[in-house]
Nucleic acid binder design. Structure first.
Lengths: 306, 306
DNA sequence: ATAATGTCTTTTATCGTAAAAAAACATTTG
DNA sequence: CAAATGTTTTTTTACGATAAAAGACATTAT
């Protein structure tokens, strides 16, 4: 079972959706571009679609015969990449009770538990190590440093440093820059979400990420941009498994974002700094609340540094 | 040729040095602790030493018979770990002429050229990717982003942000903290080096790293501390393969460090910031000079931000 | 003659496996 | 009986092999 064909299956599912919208599929290279896969995979998809009576396929002609049914799709769990599977499984352990700092991580055991080869687990751990939650002992095991209060504070500090700098760079961008349009669009989305927050609050997470990534992109610094991956990862799993108070948290955050956006549009550096700091302070508290040691006030000093 | 025994060979060589100083080797666990290897490896070493007539070994008794000769040592190149070999080889290509941004990196080709398995190369590239010089295309090749002027500037910006913050945290540490002793010791070493700079300037590189790591440690932030790995990596290879003007560069840097140390000891935040900025500005210029597009003045704005 | 399709080659992703090294357990010694 | 040695088991490190996926080359159709 050398390698799963999840790329093919996932692309196949996404391609099924395209059938609902057209009566003729485009050329192989074009399809490949839209689906983000190679022509080899595209041809595999087309072959199966023809076989299952979804299309007729003869050279350039790819005519849609029928709309896909539920049973035409591959099951969702077969479309995940191996690294996603490992990541989810690992994060579940990490954020579960009993994941104490100092614990050892055993590659072989992890691999056996998840049912994958050790190589994939190793590669995942190496990639994951840049998040600062685990550490390698040379020629030996990994050590879990834990999702602790200290981690949350260190993360929040860097985030604040980076985002304040990015926000300052943002307002310095010329008026005809693309970012202002992007910001307008995000503002509209925020307002729409705010109007129906009671039902749509779970959508905030994704909007939040897009908003902050836009701001960070203004820094034009790869280390700042890349650092958002750490934040994103932590928040992603955090939101997924810790739903307590989620609605009110998101409601507050949307309001803070709108104030932040208004400040950015005013291009007043002082206002921006204030709005940014305000939002990041409450984000920091949210994160702290979710740590095992959490629910303590923020030491006043921390916010004043920089 | 599943796995090389470089850990054993390296530890063996280091253990030979111990023979020069004592007539009796300590217990197996103690030896393991000093050499940083497991008892399994220690016993392997002892067995070979006994076999080669360097010691007699009977249970607790490990008597030294003779001082090691040149030919007792394993050749140096056999003591390098695979990842070191790959790293060196990769960095040579990276910093050589013709390593243009946008180039593709081929795992298989790299592995064949270096003469190692693909897994090791993959793992190296994943680890290396956090330095921001390469990027992965999903299910496909890596892309070289290049050691460009942009890279150097982005690196220097973050370094400045982090070091200014660390230096500020440093002077806020209580007077009885260990760091002041460490700083005193570093100062002494700097003075000694300065006195004989003409001969000893190549030793600066290592001192430089220890000094900056001490300052960064005061931040108590793992992301700041870890970021120094990026700087360290770049400077390490940079110094190794770009010796032009090295002596004068190091001479300047030593002087800047001494001023910086004096500022830290004064505990005057303004003086510290000034000395720190001054040093980092010249370090930035050194780095810029070494990029292919280098040798241009620093844009004035850059230093004023933050 | 450009862009698509058809075919073949190369590279990546992943596993099983084996040696090196670490770690755990059992036994002896001071 | 605590710490060292002797022995066995487990884990890490690394390779070669193989299916999936990408990419390159050859051919055909508009």
């Amino acid at each position: 079972m050398s390698k799963s064909n999840n790329v093919y299956k996932d692309a196949y599912n996404r391609c099924l959706r395209l059938l609902e919208e057209t009566s003729n599929l485009p050329s192989e290279p074009e399809l490949g571009a839209t689906l983000g896969v190679s022509r080899t995979t595209v041809r595999g998809i087309l072959a199966r679609m023809a076989e299952n009576g979804l299309i007729t396929w003869d050279k350039r002609d790819k005519t849609v015969l029928r709309v896909p049914k539920e049973e035409d799709f591959f099951p969702e769990e077969e479309t995940d990449s191996l690294s996603q599977i490992i990541e989810r499984s690992f994060m579940r352990r990490l954020l579960a009770e009993g994941a104490e700092a100092g614990m050892q991580i055993n590659e072989l055991e992890l691999a056996r538990d998840i049912g994958v080869g050790t190589t994939s687990v190793r590669e995942f751990l190496i990639r994951f190590s840049r998040f600062g939650l685990i550490e390698k002992r040379r020629n030996s095991h990994w050590v879990l440093k834990g999702f602790t209060r200290a981690f949350a504070l260190e993360l929040a500090d860097i985030r604040e440093m980076f985002e304040l700098r990015s926000a300052a760079a943002f307002v310095a961008l010329p008026g005809d820059s693309q970012v202002w349009d992007d910001l307008d669009r995000l503002e509209t989305e925020h307002r729409a979400l705010a109007r129906d927050i009671a039902n749509r609050y779970p959508e905030f997470s994704e909007l939040d990420e897009r908003f902050h990534r836009l701001i960070h992109s203004a820094s034009h610094n790869r280390f700042i941009v890349d650092f958002y991956d750490v934040i994103s990862m932590i928040f992603h799993y955090h939101y997924q498994w810790n739903k307590a108070g989620q609605r009110s948290r998101n409601e507050t955050a949307v309001a803070e974002h709108l104030a932040y956006i208004a400040a950015l549009k005013s291009r007043d550096a002082a206002k921006v700094e204030d709005a940014c700091r305000r939002h990041l302070t409450s984000a920091r508290q949210t994160l702290l609340d979710s740590t095992p040691e959490g629910r303590q006030a923020i030491p006043a000093k921390r916010n004043k540094t920089l």
